[in-house]
């Protein structure tokens, strides 16, 4: 499964009020998770209109932090099936319409 940056910006009517980061699935340690969530939030807010740049930023930071082979997907609609190194997966939602998958493999 390649890390694909889905870029299409589909403008939906704003009926979603919840924009806080919501972790769907993760097997990371609690502190790491919190740290990464913060990073993701920063990246997605910094590049709110450019998912690719956001993903790149997150990936670079993660490589620096936890060692290189990290993959990051930021997008609105996609499916994925990945194999990852245990305790290195984070699947979260943010901003009401973005899904972010981060894994190491």
């Amino acid at each position: 499964m390649a890390d694909t940056e889905v870029k299409e910006q589909k403008e939906e009517p704003k009926k979603i009020v919840h924009t806080y980061p919501l972790v769907r699935h993760s097997d990371m340690a609690e502190e790491t998770k919190a740290e990464i969530m913060e990073l993701v939030v920063t990246a997605c807010e910094k590049f709110s209109s450019n998912n690719e740049a956001a993903a790149k930023m997150v990936k670079d930071e993660m490589d620096k932090k936890l060692g290189p082979p990290f993959h990051v997907v930021v997008g609105e609609d996609f499916g994925f099936e990945i194999s990852y190194e245990c305790s290195n997966l984070l699947y979260m939602f943010f901003g009401g319409n973005l899904a972010i998958v981060i894994w190491k493999c």
Partner: peptide
């Protein structure tokens, strides 16, 4: 150790999760 994980991201999935 490796594991696999898969999911589908759709707008309604995100909405429902929230």
């Amino acid at each position: 150790p490796m594991a696999t994980f898969s999911a589908n991201v759709l707008q309604w999935v995100i909405y429902d999760a929230y």
